[in-house]
């Protein structure tokens, strides 16, 4: 069996707030193998960003608590020192964000921000070499006029170009893992497709694994091999992309799949799951999805379901599958 590059075990992230301790990510476990693309999907507010920031050690230290294990090549990052985390960030695990318009510092040139990323982890490199690498990387992510771009400021670039710069900056130290937190959400559809294409290409060319965070199953189908579905801070279903699309098991996953716009079918209205994600702090007892679930029965409202393996490829957290035998396909 391959050992995963990242193995997250029972990650639990809570915030100290005025209303007490709020658990936003609750015992989330997943792993990524080297070179793999794993998707994490879920509606807004279900804890995807907090999960990824926890992995990076970037949740505000003074107002939060991170429990569980974050094993990067066997090393538990949840216990690592800030000094060690600085070496990991950018160099071994890099991250790109949802908002390309505001994720680059407006007062520094593209070149200086890229070179900074290299030189933080490679102190011996001269300015000239760093600049050379920056230009090469900009070309690699498909940006035209790389030699000029290096002297330009973020506001002179479009959103799509800025996201390419972000990707270049994240990939420049050749990280083992790239965490992409909704990298295409803020972009328009054609640019979205181009950025996904680029990430796919980089994933194939390098051995960088990608953790793709999204609320769009379309993106998952496009680029991921496996997917984790999150709801209200918990994993509700997990499996290969193929198995999830072929046989979505959790009612929430079914809902998500139904709400993906399908160009071939001319539906009157797009399906959407009724209701909203419950706020952390006011989570219902029992299954957290039960109040919005059309299959919910009495047990769902009382007891919390566990994550059950349906096959080696798929796990689900739902009482509907309680009696089903573990079938090995």
């Amino acid at each position: 069996m391959v050992t995963p590059v990242l193995d997250v075990k029972k990650l639990k992230t809570s915030f100290f707030t005025d209303d007490g301790l709020l658990t936003v990510v609750n015992e989330v476990s997943f792993h990524i193998n080297a070179g793999e693309v794993l998707g994490i999907v879920g509606e807004s507010g279900c804890g995807k960003s907090v999960t990824s920031l926890s992995v990076m050690g970037l949740v505000p230290a003074l107002t939060s608590k991170v429990e569980g294990e974050i094993l990067y090549k066997g090393e538990n990052l949840a216990q690592a020192s800030e000094k060690r985390m600085r070496q990991v960030r950018g160099n071994e695990i890099a991250m790109i964000f949802q908002e390309p318009m505001t994720s680059l510092n407006p007062l520094f040139t593209i070149g200086s921000q890229l070179m900074e990323a290299i030189r933080l982890h490679n102190k011996k490199l001269s300015k000239k070499e760093a600049k050379q690498q920056a230009v090469t990387m900009l070309k690699k992510v498909g940006l035209p006029r790389a030699d000029e771009l290096i002297n330009e400021y973020p506001h002179q670039l479009s959103g799509g170009m800025r996201q390419r710069v972000m990707i270049a900056m994240a990939m420049i130290c050749n990280p083992q893992i790239l965490i992409a937190d909704e990298p295409t959400t803020a972009l328009d559809v054609t640019i979205q497709a181009q950025i996904l294409e680029l990430m796919k290409k980089l994933n194939e060319e390098t051995d960088t694994a990608i953790l793709m965070i999204t609320h769009d199953l379309g993106v998952v189908a496009e680029i991921c091999q496996r997917v984790v579905v999150m709801y209200a801070g918990k994993v509700v279903e997990e499996g290969t992309v193929e198995s999830i699309f072929k046989k979505p098991s959790h009612p929430y996953t079914k809902g998500l799949i139904q709400s993906v716009p399908d160009m071939r079918q001319k539906k009157e209205r797009l399906f959407s799951i009724p209701g909203n994600v419950p706020k952390p702090g006011s989570l219902p007892i029992g299954c957290q999805f039960a109040p919005r679930c059309s299959y919910a029965h009495e047990k769902c409202l009382k007891e919390t379901p566990y994550l059950k393996a349906l096959s080696i490829e798929q796990k689900v957290r739902c009482w509907l599958y309680e009696d089903e035998k573990e079938s090995i396909v």
């Binding site: 990076m56 970037l58 600085r86 070496q87 990991v88 960030r89 950018g90 160099n91 890099a94 991250m95 964000f97 908002e99 505001t102 994720s103 680059l104 510092n105 407006p106 007062l107 520094f108 900074e116 990323a117 933080l120 982890h121 972000m166 900056m169």
Partner: peptide
């Protein structure tokens, strides 16, 4: 609180440099 400060930290930059280089200038 801004996004580009998060980016700088995600690059692996130490707090002192984040504060005096990226934040103070803005």
């Amino acid at each position: 609180r801004s996004d580009y400060i998060r980016t700088a930290r995600a690059k692996g930059m130490g707090m002192l440099k984040v504060v005096y280089k990226h934040s103070l200038r803005n």
